[in-house]
Design a protein around this nucleic acid. Structure first.
Lengths: 242, 242
DNA sequence: CGATGCTTTGACTCCGTTCAAGATCGGTGG
DNA sequence: CCACCGATCTTGAACGGAGTCAAAGCATCG
């Protein structure tokens, strides 16, 4: 084992110093020495909205942390029907350990900033440092919880409930402070209508109609198609079917 | 409980000797000493179909391995609509590490045999033995892959495709040998029509109608409502929408 | 035997899709 | 600045697939 001899922020690579993933992400499990080793092999990159990060069935040789933006994970049937099976926000870990090929398609839903490192480097550190595996397990369990929540939405909720649930999901991610206050939550949708439809298992038209209905009923207001303001979150929650 | 004191087959507890979980399950990560320690605190139990194993929001104090039978994990909306979010077969691990309360309801879909151990014992061993955490990570990733596959089915497939996909899922679990051979695969459905409906996000009636259609078309045959024989698996696959 | 709980089948309804115009946004160039 | 354009989004009308309601068929078990 390595001796602890570094001063607190002294040995932290500049690449990592302001990085969210160092605290709340998987890198939080690494000590300064490991962080230096990993940072040497890492590279920060910016991807524009719509670009494909990882293709389905594609061999993957690197993993990443999402530093900013939203990544959507999709699956597509042979005839083109598509379903979003996961949304990743900062500081989520992007990649599927123990498999060389990806079973999903990863695409930048917004402009995205990533910190990428070679597959081998992570796998080596997983063997050395049990804390890293623990972080990955926790993140995977979190994603499984989210997937299961979403299965209820996909299988059992109406279109109106699905759209309300989606808006709450985004609102909670953008502004985690509880909505019990009177003031409105306001944010930009990170997804187009088409992406929202793929996420909810609906068509673009149905999503649009349900959003229009919520606006007509005064639950939300929309500007420029993307900017949403939730006037009363409790009314949205009532429509989400809990 | 019943642990043999004399050394036999390298000190493996009798409880574990014929256990599938020792090879393919999480216990495969443990050495004989750990196995003995865990076996001391473990107990095998049999549960009859329909019994509730873990209630939603319930505090959980033990984890289990599924030794035989099928466990269904469900989520229920406030108005009673229900969705199955996971099916567990032997030798799956049953439990949610790092959370004291369960977010799902676990119920025996068939008669089930479990090996249960106190939460604390597993958590202690996770700290001592990184191999155990690795096994849990792999199992969780597998469950996440399955959940994501199912999200596509729930969100984007028709009722006919959903039912065909379900039959294939069960057929592959009961008889993993590839269906490229001419002979028919035959099995008992571990789920009632109501459970199948909850799994597929459909109603009982729709499931029944789709099964009748497949039977009328000669793709499957059904006896006694439960016993299914898949005449030609390729025709079922064609209907599952891949 | 009937009694009970599943399952199947039929008739009708309704929610979300499909098909088809328009409307609005953002960018580009005259 | 405005005209034009493609992409995205909204709205309307008609259709169809799955849900709902209702009744009858079949198991299993006393």
């Amino acid at each position: 084992m390595n001796l602890r001899e570094d001063v607190h922020t002294a040995g932290i690579p500049v690449l990592c110093q302001a990085c969210e993933a160092r605290h709340r992400g998987v890198c939080g499990a690494l000590d300064p020495n490991q962080l230096v080793t990993l940072a040497k092999a890492s590279s920060k990159q910016t991807i524009e909205a719509g670009a494909e990060l990882v293709g389905d069935m594609e061999t993957v040789d690197h993993y990443s942390n999402v530093l900013a933006g939203v990544v959507k994970l999709t699956k597509t049937l042979s005839d083109g029907r598509q379903q979003i099976v996961g949304l990743q926000f900062a500081p989520d870990f992007l990649g599927r350990p123990f498999k060389s090929e990806s079973a999903v398609n990863a695409e930048a839903a917004t402009n995205v900033s990533l910190c990428s490192f070679p597959k081998g480097a992570i796998e080596r550190m997983m063997r050395e440092s049990p804390g890293l595996e623990n972080r990955l397990l926790r993140q995977t369990l979190k994603e499984l919880d989210e997937a299961r929540d979403w299965m209820v939405t996909l299988g059992r909720k109406t279109a109106a409930e699905k759209v309300a649930s989606f808006l709450l999901l985004i609102a909670n991610h953008i502004d985690p402070s509880s909505g019990d206050e009177g003031r409105a939550t306001t944010f930009d949708l990170p997804l187009t209508r088409a992406a929202i439809a793929d996420f909810l298992g609906l068509t673009i038209e149905t999503v649009s109609r349900q959003l229009s209905k919520l606006r007509a009923e005064g639950v939300i207001s929309i500007e420029n198609n993307r900017h949403v303001s939730v006037a009363r979150r409790d009314r949205l929650e009532a429509r989400a079917g809990h």
